[in-house]
């Protein structure tokens, strides 16, 4: 039955070559933890992606209850955390995942750095990886404000204050980030938009490029 459905789709879309392309490639010995235990350092990249998937899913579900409006944002977070079943878990996943993804990405970056894996011909993938790093930091910064509690509000004020110290264009950056003269309704709305649409969109594109390049170039050889 499943076989037949697969054949039906395959006849029309020729998916087998794509599928075989994903599944069939050899993983070299030096990244196989069964042979060298130290190969566990290679799992940080995969774990970063795994946590990113958790972040995307939990974030999608959180927006079912969250409203980006300074009057109701806090109330809606409080409601989803305390009144909705498993709200503590889903928000907890997003909250702790945000830190964990940074940790994993940091370890992954250090692995690549200390192994010199960014050298020719993998320079471009390093640059894309760095861009992903900045996207993640941006996601962390914009997401921090969304619960609209004291911690969120004052930390964002500090963050925007830091950006505002940039000479010459500091005032412009501040206004751009705040969407006005104070950290308020407009700030929350634009942080939400950036956190939920702009940065994840960019992240998807960069992740796709990252993976395609890994597949093309293969894993860097043993030291």
């Amino acid at each position: 039955m499943i076989r037949k459905m697969y054949d039906w789709v395959d006849e029309r879309l020729n998916v087998t070559p794509m599928w075989r392309d994903i599944a069939d490639h050899e993983v070299p010995e030096h990244v196989n933890p069964a042979h060298h235990f130290s190969a566990f350092v290679y799992c940080f990249g995969g774990l970063t992606f795994f946590i990113t998937v958790i972040q995307i899913l939990s974030g999608m579900f959180l927006t079912m209850y969250y409203v980006p409006d300074i009057v109701n944002a806090y109330k809606s977070v409080e409601y989803l955390q305390n009144e909705v079943a498993f709200g503590v878990i889903v928000r907890g996943m997003h909250h702790w995942g945000a830190s964990l993804v940074i940790v994993m990405m940091f370890l992954h970056t250090l692995r690549v750095f200390f192994q010199g894996a960014y050298k020719h011909p993998r320079e471009l993938n390093w640059v894309v990886g760095m861009l992903i790093f900045f996207m993640m930091l941006g996601l962390g910064f914009t997401g921090y404000l969304l619960p609209w509690d004291n911690k969120a509000y004052f930390a964002t004020k500090v963050g925007i204050g830091m950006a505002g110290q940039v000479p010459l264009i500091g005032g412009f950056i501040t206004k751009l980030l705040q969407g006005g003269d104070i950290v308020g309704a407009e700030t929350l709305a634009r942080f939400f938009a950036v956190h939920v649409f702009f940065l994840p969109g960019a992240l998807f594109g960069l992740l796709g490029a990252h993976f395609i390049m890994i597949r093309r170039q293969g894993i860097s050889g043993p030291l």
Partner: peptide, 19 residues
């Protein structure tokens, strides 16, 4: 297991108002 562990709490979370 991975999918269930991730999605089970989220789906319960989303379906809760209907239950």
């Amino acid at each position: 297991f991975l999918a269930a562990g991730m999605l089970a709490p989220m789906i319960k979370f989303a379906v809760d108002p209907a239950l």
